[in-house]
Amino acid sequence: MTADINETKLIEQAKSDPEAFGRLYQLYLEKVYTYIFYRTGNHHDAEDLTAKVFHRVLDHIARYNNRGIPFSVWLFRIAHNLVVNWYRDHHRKRLVNIEKLNLATDQHHNPPQIAEQTNEQELLLAAIRQLPLERQDLLALKFVEKMSNAEIGQIMGRSESSIKSLYHRTLVSLKEILAEHENVVKN
């Protein structure tokens, strides 16, 4: 609650105070960068789009009013729209760039087990990137940004129940992709 109040204060200050905007930037940089990185699959485009997001936030923050839309939802809606435009403008194919993906494992502990784990993670990331864009978006917002179905719905322009349903279908599709891959490996 106190954190919410502090953040609301910071957002109001950031509208007219450049230093407050700098603090707001520090607060959200990693979240925005992580979201974009998992959506684009490479650091170069993630940096480019993250910069565009924050420049756009700076351009429009004076007009932001918390009327039922939290700042994080407003911010990620900007990021979401920029990623959608990026896919449209560049006609990007969903290329898997696994070697560039930063995985959460510590390579120094128990190497054989870690190697197996990393391989499994790489496979999963590859499978995620084969999903339709909307489903990739849902997983990133849910598991990277830790957003509720209602917040994801606000960003993606869908109802909360439709997000629940989409999440179920996403897990089922992902399971099918992984099973298909397993069959290919076996044969």
């Binding site: 450049p18 230093e19 905007f21 700098g22 930037y25 520090q26 940089l29 990693e30 979240k31 960068y33 992580t34 990185f37 998992y38 650091h43 993630a46 940096e47 993250t50 910069a51 924050f54 420049h55 700076l58 930063n102 995985l103 959460a104 499994e120 993670q121 999963l124 990331l125 995620i128 997983l139 990133a140 598991f143 990277v144 897990l171 992902l174 399971k175 992984l178």
Partner: peptide
């Protein structure tokens, strides 16, 4: 599967020089 996704999609930090340069650009603007 959901557990594996949560474990796989971990936070990614941007490069330090990118962070600093972008912050500087934004503050100047």
């Amino acid at each position: 599967l959901a557990k594996k996704i949560r474990f796989t999609l971990s936070p990614v930090s941007p490069m330090g020089n990118f962070q600093a340069k972008l912050k500087q650009d934004l503050l100047t603007k």
